[in-house]
Protein backbone atom coordinates (compact mmCIF):
# COMPACT_ATOMS: atom_id res chain seq x y z
CA UNK A 1 0.00 0.00 0.00
CA UNK A 2 1.15 3.47 -0.76
CA UNK A 3 2.03 5.82 2.02
CA UNK A 4 -0.58 8.49 2.64
CA UNK A 5 0.41 11.86 1.29
CA UNK A 6 0.56 15.09 3.23
CA UNK A 7 -2.77 16.77 3.84
CA UNK A 8 -2.99 20.48 3.53
CA UNK A 9 -3.95 22.22 6.75
CA UNK A 10 -6.38 25.05 6.11
CA UNK A 11 -6.06 28.02 8.43
CA UNK A 12 -8.78 29.08 10.84
CA UNK A 13 -8.63 32.48 9.21
CA UNK A 14 -9.74 31.06 5.85
CA UNK A 15 -12.68 29.31 7.50
CA UNK A 16 -13.65 32.46 9.38
CA UNK A 17 -13.58 34.57 6.21
CA UNK A 18 -15.71 32.00 4.36
CA UNK A 19 -18.15 31.80 7.27
CA UNK A 20 -18.44 35.60 7.25
CA UNK A 21 -19.13 35.58 3.49
CA UNK A 22 -21.78 32.86 3.92
CA UNK A 23 -23.57 34.85 6.64
CA UNK A 24 -23.43 38.03 4.53
CA UNK A 25 -24.91 36.13 1.56
CA UNK A 26 -27.69 34.77 3.79
CA UNK A 27 -28.54 38.31 4.94
CA UNK A 28 -28.50 39.55 1.35
CA UNK A 29 -30.92 36.83 0.25
CA UNK A 30 -33.29 37.64 3.14
CA UNK A 31 -33.17 41.38 2.34
CA UNK A 32 -33.55 40.94 -1.42
CA UNK A 33 -36.61 38.72 -1.11
CA UNK A 34 -38.24 41.27 1.22
CA UNK A 35 -38.43 43.58 -1.79
CA UNK A 36 -41.15 42.33 -4.10
CA UNK A 37 -39.43 41.68 -7.41
CA UNK A 38 -41.78 38.98 -8.63
CA UNK A 39 -40.05 36.14 -10.42
CA UNK A 40 -36.65 37.80 -10.18
CA UNK A 41 -36.52 37.22 -6.42
CA UNK A 42 -36.74 33.44 -6.99
CA UNK A 43 -33.78 33.62 -9.36
CA UNK A 44 -31.80 35.84 -6.98
CA UNK A 45 -32.53 33.64 -3.93
CA UNK A 46 -31.55 30.45 -5.75
CA UNK A 47 -28.42 32.03 -7.26
CA UNK A 48 -27.29 33.11 -3.80
CA UNK A 49 -27.96 29.57 -2.54
CA UNK A 50 -25.84 28.32 -5.44
CA UNK A 51 -22.95 30.63 -4.58
CA UNK A 52 -23.14 29.57 -0.93
CA UNK A 53 -23.07 25.90 -1.97
CA UNK A 54 -19.99 26.51 -4.12
CA UNK A 55 -18.23 28.19 -1.17
CA UNK A 56 -19.09 25.25 1.12
CA UNK A 57 -17.93 22.74 -1.52
CA UNK A 58 -14.65 24.53 -2.26
CA UNK A 59 -13.53 25.52 1.24
CA UNK A 60 -15.41 23.58 3.91
CA UNK A 61 -15.40 20.35 1.91
CA UNK A 62 -11.82 21.01 0.73
CA UNK A 63 -12.50 20.58 -2.98
CA UNK A 64 -10.14 23.45 -3.72
CA UNK A 65 -7.30 21.59 -2.02
CA UNK A 66 -8.20 18.00 -2.91
CA UNK A 67 -7.52 16.07 -6.09
CA UNK A 68 -9.42 17.28 -9.16
CA UNK A 69 -11.13 13.87 -9.37
CA UNK A 70 -13.59 14.85 -6.59
CA UNK A 71 -14.65 18.04 -8.34
CA UNK A 72 -15.17 16.16 -11.61
CA UNK A 73 -17.35 13.55 -9.89
CA UNK A 74 -19.47 16.24 -8.21
CA UNK A 75 -19.83 18.14 -11.48
CA UNK A 76 -21.11 14.89 -13.01
CA UNK A 77 -23.76 14.47 -10.30
CA UNK A 78 -24.87 18.11 -10.59
CA UNK A 79 -25.10 17.86 -14.40
CA UNK A 80 -27.19 14.70 -14.02
CA UNK A 81 -29.58 16.48 -11.63
CA UNK A 82 -29.89 19.49 -13.95
CA UNK A 83 -30.61 17.24 -16.93
CA UNK A 84 -33.34 15.38 -15.01
CA UNK A 85 -34.92 18.71 -14.09
CA UNK A 86 -34.77 20.05 -17.66
CA UNK A 87 -36.10 16.87 -19.25
CA UNK A 88 -38.90 16.71 -16.68
CA UNK A 89 -39.98 20.28 -17.34
CA UNK A 90 -40.09 19.61 -21.08
CA UNK A 91 -43.29 17.74 -20.23
CA UNK A 92 -44.82 20.82 -18.64
CA UNK A 93 -44.32 23.18 -21.54
Amino acid sequence: MEKSEEHKIISFKTYTVILFLLIVLTSVSVLVTKIDLGNISIIVALSIAGIKTILVFLFFMHLLYDKKMYSIMIAGVLILMTLVLIILFLDYQ
Binding site: T26, T33, S41, L46, T53, F60
Partner: peptide
Amino acid sequence: VDIIWIFLFPLFYLIV
Protein backbone atom coordinates in the same frame (compact mmCIF):
# COMPACT_ATOMS: atom_id res chain seq x y z
CA VAL B 1 -26.61 18.61 5.77
CA ASP B 2 -25.67 22.30 5.67
CA ILE B 3 -25.93 22.46 1.86
CA ILE B 4 -29.39 20.87 1.89
CA TRP B 5 -30.53 23.51 4.37
CA ILE B 6 -29.00 26.26 2.20
CA PHE B 7 -31.58 25.26 -0.44
CA LEU B 8 -34.49 24.45 1.89
CA PHE B 9 -34.29 27.91 3.44
CA PRO B 10 -34.96 30.03 0.33
CA LEU B 11 -37.41 27.53 -1.16
CA PHE B 12 -39.69 27.35 1.87
CA TYR B 13 -39.11 30.60 3.78
CA LEU B 14 -37.97 33.27 1.38
CA ILE B 15 -39.98 32.84 -1.78
CA VAL B 16 -43.22 34.57 -0.87
